[in-house]
Amino acid sequence: MRAAIDIGSNSIRLALSDGTGRSTITKLADGIDRTGKLSPVGLSATLDALREYAKVCRAAGCDNITVFATEAVRRAADGEQFCAAVKAEINLDVLILSAEQEARLALAGATKPDGAITVCDLGGGSLEVICSEDGKTPSYVKSLPLGVVVMKNKFNGDYRRAIDELPTLLREYGTVPAHPVVITGGSACTIAACMLNLKIYDKNKVSTRFTAKQLDDFMPMLLSPKLALFRPVCQKRADTVPYGAIVIQALLNRLGATEFYVSDASNLEAVLNGALDDTI
């Protein structure tokens, strides 16, 4: 039995090869732009989740547990210290992915149409944009610190300023090939669940196609202070989902995309299926 654990900037996720999965919001990157370090509250929540996930893995008889961390741990001054604590307290080795490894895994793991594709992995700390002419080999990879936790900390509830400034922030991606767009990450999937009015999150239902106009029309709901009341499926992400929507809307405009796909599967599934070996 194999297991993979993704220590993200906003959440930590577990997947087992028998289909078992868990996700916990930890907000590890909260405040990192101000302090340069991982959130103390997020650290505690992440370690608690890792302890629980390790128990699940060992109870299931997993003989292979791959644990990896992304933007928050990669960027934080105390990222290596955190990995050492995980080893000392939970006996799990944590691999800190490079931005390029993270991007390649997102491309490998995403559920996507055949052929040329642009995969956009929106996490808590970063936004990776990966283009591929054949859907397998990256031809363009760029990661910027435009994740939803970073955006929440930067704009602090001022959605209007976020909407006005995102187009400028996205210019750093330069010219991106005009391929079909797939968006991955917890915020994108939660937004999809909200747009579908799901009462209970369903990873198979959220992995589908939407038009940019559908998102535009739904923005008032996504930016509403009563979002979690009307769409309880996003309750745990209610403070970051609005920024995810703003980033995605600006990104689609930047790419000139009139439609996009959402994929629940991403780097976690790629690692579980052994794709990490191809990036090392």
Rank of each mutant, 00 (worst) to 15 (best):
F218A: 14
P180V: 00
C57N: 00
A178F: 05
P113K: 09
A29T: 11
D216T: 15
A212T: 15
D158I: 08
N64C: 13
F230V: 03
A257S: 15
T211R: 04
F210P: 12
G174W: 01
L198D: 03
D239N: 10
D239F: 11
E52R: 15
D33W: 07
I5L: 11
G109F: 04
V181H: 03
S132V: 03
L169C: 01
T70S: 04
S23D: 08
C57M: 10
A84Q: 15
F68H: 02
C131S: 15
I280K: 15
L227G: 05
I32T: 12
G124T: 09
A54L: 05
V247F: 06
P113H: 12
T279Y: 13
V206G: 07
I32K: 10
A77Q: 11
A238I: 10
T258M: 11
A59E: 14
S44M: 10
R2P: 00
A188Y: 09
F155H: 08
Q235D: 13
Y53L: 05
D78K: 13
I65A: 01
S98K: 06
Y261M: 08
A54M: 02
A106Q: 05
K142A: 05
R2L: 05
V86S: 07
V119P: 07
L223I: 06
A88P: 00
G124L: 07
P225M: 12
L255C: 02
Y159T: 04
N91F: 08
P220C: 03
E71I: 03
K112Y: 10
A84I: 02
V119D: 02
R51G: 15
P138I: 08
L252A: 13
P113A: 04
A99H: 08
V141P: 07
L146N: 05
T20N: 00
P145V: 12
A3C: 14
S39I: 10
I163G: 00
Q81K: 13
K37D: 06
L38A: 13
T190R: 07
T66R: 14
G244R: 03
S17H: 03
A238R: 15
A54F: 01
E80R: 14
I191H: 12
L229P: 01
L107D: 00
E269P: 05
N156G: 01
G123T: 06
V86D: 13
L215D: 08
A77H: 08
E102D: 04
R231N: 13
S139E: 12
P113S: 08
G19M: 10
A245S: 12
T168F: 00
T70K: 01
G186D: 09
S23Y: 01
N153Y: 07
A85R: 15
S39M: 12
A238Q: 14
T118I: 09
L223K: 11
N204P: 10
K236G: 03
P225G: 06
V262I: 15
L47R: 13
V247M: 02
R13C: 05
